[in-house]
């Protein structure tokens, strides 16, 4: 399998009043084209920092070591100007809370359109057609009209659908989903998960799926990375990891899941 994203010995360090702290330590994983890789770990284990490092969106002050290669090209150390072309075009990201992740002052149509136009030369009219198509693809009813709606006029699940439409509008090779369903109702979670899995298969996008819910990982990921306090405690084939966890921490995570029927999730 040719790998789309290769992360090697990634370390993210923050300067703090008590000296530098590694919030991500020597993490390595890879994502193939058309593959979903899960990252699990409890709160504060460094999942978001790992994701943001790939996007070049770490908070100011953070320093990185190691290597992040997308399509064979090194991303770490690239100037922001170049990273801007990667963001949205080659790799895009969706976040945990879709309401606060969308700008309340602009219609969702404009927010998708501006992203498309940042990467493609086209007229506003062409961009609008793309927006409607993108909204249709994620199952927003009456997409022409809804493109003119503001984020607060959608339900939580629909907002995340809008975020997904936006993230995929430039057909990126890599999609990073950082706990995209955590803020949603259980039934809506299942729908969004189904939508993401479906679109991922359809478009052949490589996906990094971040969650603290192992049950979700087992239903959509082929590989899984387990993180604990910034360190990688387990990495490998999802089924194997779940069947025979080698690390106590993974076992603890597995045991903490209430028994769920995986069928319900997808």
């Amino acid at each position: 399998m040719s790998e789309l994203l290769v992360v090697e010995d990634l370390t993210v360090t923050f300067p703090t009043s008590r000296g530098p702290v590694d919030v991500v330590k020597d993490v390595s994983f890879a994502v193939g084209r058309n593959e979903t890789v899960g990252i699990v770990g409890e709160s504060g284990s460094g999942k978001s920092m790992t994701s943001l490092a790939v996007m070049g969106l770490l908070p100011p002050g953070a320093t990185t070591r190691g290597s992040i290669r997308l399509d064979g090209a090194e991303l770490l150390g690239r100037p922001d100007r170049e990273m801007r072309r990667v963001r949205g075009e080659q790799a895009s990201m969706i976040f945990q809370d879709p309401l606060s992740s969308l700008n309340p002052y602009y219609t969702v149509g404009l927010q998708i359109e501006e992203m498309y136009r940042a990467h493609r030369r086209c007229s506003r009219k062409e961009a609008r057609a793309v927006v409607v198509e993108a909204l249709t693809q994620v199952g927003i009813p009456e997409p022409e009209r809804r493109a003119g709606y503001y984020p607060h006029q959608f339900s939580g699940g629909q907002r995340q659908r809008v975020m997904i439409a936006m993230a995929l509008v430039c057909s990126p090779a890599l999609l990073i989903a950082d706990e995209p369903t955590t803020a949603l109702d259980v039934t809506v979670q299942a729908q969004i998960l189904g939508l993401l899995a479906g679109l991922q298969r359809e478009t052949g996008t490589g996906m990094v799926f971040v969650t603290h819910d192992l049950a979700v990982i087992s239903s959509i990921a082929t590989r899984v990375l387990v993180m604990c306090r910034g360190e990688q405690v387990e990495y490998g084939d999802a089924e194997q990891v779940f069947a025979a966890p080698r690390h106590d921490y993974t076992r603890m995570l597995l045991e903490s899941i209430p028994r769920i029927d995986d069928e319900v999730v997808l």
């Binding site: 996007m55 801007r84 963001r87 949205g88 990201m93 976040f95 992740s101 969308l102 992203m115 975020m163």
Partner: peptide, 11 residues
């Protein structure tokens, strides 16, 4: 958060 989204879009 929407500022992070804006940056993640490559604007």
């Amino acid at each position: 958060n929407f500022m992070r989204t804006a940056r993640s879009k490559g604007l």
